[in-house]
Amino acid sequence: MNPAMLIPLQLLLTVSLQVLFFQNLTLWNGWGILAFHALGILLLPLNTRPVVLLVVSALVGASVDFFAYGGGLFTSSAITMATFLPFINRLLAPREGYEVTDEPTIKSMGIQWFSVRTFAALSIHNLWLFSLEAGRWSLMFTGWGKALTSSFLGLFLFAAVLQLVQAKRKKR
């Protein structure tokens, strides 16, 4: 499929899955909450301009908020994650920089690069989200704990989804 078509499609798919399925899924008594739409943002090309990344993330977050009654919670978290994503990419860049053909996937960059980047980005997203939601200091530490466990859960889910998708592509 044309890559230009693939990006909106993967954003639409991840947002739809979050709205229709993952937002209703709460594991371990609130310690495992998934933000599947973040995968769509993380899969945007590595050379995406920071401003475009911010705008797309805001739209993705707002779509989830609109259907999940988040009241701006997911929008704000997605924008925060998108702000830090270029820095994370720069920190994890190979010595000679990224190739034009590099994609932010396990297949292209390896499991170690993918895991560190995804966990860092998801942690920023979730720490912001749970801190805002906690709204007071007495609940902040519990919120941060939930953010980190949810980030681990998200990392495993994203890795599993990408492995499945890539395995399918390989078979073809």
């Binding site: 805001a58 707002a62 009241g71 701006g72 919670l73 704000s76 924008i79 702000t83 805002l132």
Partner: peptide, 23 residues
């Protein structure tokens, strides 16, 4: 980048403050 971030985050926080908890 900073200006777009401030604009979008301002809008999101405005939305959050005015609607959180009481739709």
């Amino acid at each position: 980048v900073i200006l777009v971030f401030m604009l979008l985050q301002g809008l999101a926080m405005g939305w959050f403050v005015t609607s959180h908890g009481y739709p």
